[in-house]
């Protein structure tokens, strides 16, 4: 077991290193950041000074080695385009908003997908089944920004119930971005719930409960639903990471001041250290959650070994 965990941790670190190298290289493909950092008529002497200040005059492998060296000590560097402020502070100020949005989106996914999943399983091949599938599939097939803009138009502009954007109005502010972000995962969770429910509904103990005259709602919600939750909940643990990273577009559309919004700004400004830090942070979330799930599986099922 210990060997398994050790090897999985090594794999995770290797994956992070590869990701960091890819991000580091790709960010530089987008062009010279000095072109954006400095005005058009900046003298060459100033251009060179700025290159030197940010280490851009060094070979790329030295830049990478320096970056990784600082990163592992918790120093993410300074944000070039934000006047040299520490990136750690920038991320710390935005991360809570992103986590809050992802958490709300997770709840939205569960709140929509689980009841629909149960309903369509119980009413299999009925109009509910087909309607539920359509509702869920719309979420998965339509881009989240399009869903977001439609929601914004309907609930903020036409009905005036909710704010269009920002995070000033407390709970009201998070509803639209949270629904737009969480709706994407509804289809997958709903289908997992449906198939899991159908499987449980077909078991002997459920048939026995019905024969004994137990009310149908009690059979479904007390006996079937709880047992059917295992599979969708495993998946929902994983979509936490998807929701964190999926916030990039939604945060931009809804002016939600989180990491996704910062990432877009950083890309626009070619602020490489900020881009790298955010992408590596997101990647680390993914890898950590996968690692956690793998370790839990190994713990729960001793037959799983590396």
């Amino acid at each position: 077991m210990q060997r398994f965990i050790f090897l999985r941790v090594i794999q995770s670190i290797a994956a992070l290193l590869v990701i960091s190298a890819v991000v580091f290289a790709l960010a530089r493909v987008t062009g010279d950041p000095v072109a954006i950092l400095l005005p058009e008529d900046a003298p060459d002497t100033v251009v060179e000074q700025v290159r030197e200040k940010w280490g851009l005059d060094q070979p790329i492998y030295i830049q990478y080695a320096r970056y990784i060296g600082n990163f592992v000590t918790g120093d993410f560097g300074e944000a070039w385009a934000y006047g040299g402020v520490p990136i750690t502070g920038l991320i710390a100020s935005r991360l809570p908003n992103t986590i809050m949005l992802a958490a709300f989106a997770w709840v939205v996914s569960a709140a929509i997908a689980l009841p629909i999943g149960v309903l369509v399983a119980v009413k299999k091949d009925s109009v509910f089944d087909w309607t539920g599938k359509v509702v869920a599939l719309i979420g998965q097939s339509a881009p989240s920004f399009a869903i977001g803009l439609i929601l914004m138009w309907v609930f903020a502009v036409l009905l005036g119930w909710l704010p269009t954007s920002g995070n000033d109005d407390g709970f009201k502010s998070i509803i639209l971005p949270g629904v737009a972000l969480g709706y994407y995962n509804v289809a997958a969770v709903m289908r997992l719930t449906r198939s899991s429910m159908l499987e449980v509904l077909d078991t002997e103990y459920v048939k026995l409960a019905r024969i004994k005259g137990m009310p149908e709602w009690k059979v479904i919600w007390k006996h079937c639903f709880r047992n059917a939750l295992i599979v969708p909940f495993t998946y929902m643990g994983l979509i936490g990471a998807i929701l964190l990273t999926g916030s990039v577009v939604i945060e931009t559309v809804f002016v939600w001041p989180g990491l996704g919004d910062l990432a877009i700004d950083a890309i626009r400004n070619r602020d490489f250290p900020v881009i790298q830090s955010i992408v590596i942070l997101f990647a680390a979330c993914y890898i950590f959650i996968n690692l956690l799930v793998d370790v839990m599986y190994a713990y729960l099922n001793p037959r799983i070994r590396y």
Binding site: T164, T252, V253
Partner: peptide
């Protein structure tokens, strides 16, 4: 000042009188 990157968001903000 509200900083809204997306054009349609700014349109919605004006139309919603935000």
């Amino acid at each position: 000042f509200f900083f809204a990157e997306e054009d349609l968001t700014r349109v919605a903000m004006l139309r919603a009188k935000e």
